[in-house]
Design a binder for these strands. Structure first.
Length: 304
RNA sequence: CGCGGGGUGGAGCAGCCUGGUAGCUCGCAAGGCUCAUAACCUUGAGGUCGGCGGUUCAAAUCCGUCCCCCGCAA
């Protein structure tokens, strides 16, 4: 019986944890500590935290992983599996596991190392992305890779859908990779560091739509930032988040509402809004939205 | 106690400030027009105005309280 610890935090990692739990005994699950968040500043547990409790697994939530050095050492670890945990590891910690720390990263490394690979790949209008199984070293997503699996990015893919697809792909491939690593049969190859690019954390301001951009770019922005933080604009001091949209060939003055369906002109072409959310309201299909919100043809939406 | 918006027929909203016959855009049903229609015309059904309590001759509207949804911020 191997000693395995799982470390992860967001929803993306949940199906993967469940899958591993089906086959292996997991000694403990590490995740980020509950933080004050959301409306009313309530303490919120991470998705993995909740899942681990449901699976009756032991949960540890150190602010800094080093706090649990002794605990991890006692476990006499064979393998640590890391999926979007959110902390870097020191050499001291990494040396505690015989087979190292196996990480799933949601990009085709060395491309898009870092925090937001899924969003960045869509924002950048890329055609494909994927997942990489790699061994963690001290630097950010720079360790050697043993397997990569790619997937096409479709026009209708937004960050949520793509995340689900990649998460699903990960669950399909996780067991065979874990087994190989445990058996010492996995072959890890050094990344080509000269080709590394970084997927910086998403900042909320990136969601603000600049209508001078092309429709293509704006749609990438809408899809890449769905559902959070979302791409938005302001009109009459209210914030409107565009959840789904598609490209339209018409063009007009930048930011102009071209028709009664709220098609909005961009720097190049225009976009048809499919789903929209006004601040304080639930998301609505554009048809429903327009029944109660009159946005007249000819209105100019500024990017200020 | 982080800031704020909202809960009104099946859907989306207005009305609330300045209490006094419940309205709009749709949907639905029936009929009409039409070669025909998602178009147009006529008629109709459908609402304890989130719950409870208070003020008042009278509360969707004012006051209190509770429940639920959401945006921002972190």
């Amino acid at each position: 019986m191997s000693n395995i610890v799982f470390m992860g935090t967001p929803q993306f990692a949940v199906p993967i944890l469940k899958k591993i739990n089906q086959k292996y005994k997991i000694n403990c699950v590490f995740t980020q500590p509950p933080s004050k968040s959301n409306r009313g500043q309530k303490f919120t547990k991470s998705s993995i935290h909740i899942c681990a409790e449901e699976l009756n697994l032991e949960v540890k939530t150190p602010k800094k992983i080093d706090e649990e050095f002794e605990y991890l050492k006692e476990l006499n670890l064979d393998l640590v599996i890391v999926v979007a945990y959110g902390q870097l590891f020191s050499k001291k910690i990494l040396d505690l596991s015989k087979r190292g720390f196996l990480n799933i990263h949601a990009s085709l490394l060395p491309k898009w190392r870092g925090a937001a690979p899924i969003q960045r790949s869509i924002l950048n209008n890329e055609k494909k992305t994927g997942i990489s199984f790699m061994k963690i070293d001290e630097k950010l997503d720079s360790g050697p890779v043993c397997n990569k699996y790619s997937i096409d990015i479709l026009d209708q893919d937004n960050a949520e859908i793509l995340s689900e697809k990649l998460s699903y792909l990960s669950t399909e491939k996780i067991l065979e990779n874990v087994q190989k690593v445990l058996d010492g049969e996995a072959i890890f190859k050094e990344q080509d560091h000269s080709k590394a690019t970084y997927a910086k954390k998403i900042q909320k301001i990136e969601g603000k739509i600049d209508w001078n951009n092309s429709a293509r770019k704006i749609i990438a922005q809408i899809n890449g930032l769905y559902p959070k933080p979302g791409a938005w604009f302001e009109l009459n001091n209210k914030r409107y988040k565009i959840l789904k949209a598609k490209k339209n060939k018409q063009s007009a003055t930048i930011g102009e509402v071209i028709d009664e369906q709220m098609t909005i002109a961009c720097g190049e072409n225009s976009i048809n809004i499919i789903e929209i959310q006004k601040e304080g309201k639930n998301p609505q299909l554009i048809k429903e939205f327009l029944l109660g919100n009159k946005v007249r043809k000819g209105t100019i939406i500024t990017s200020e």
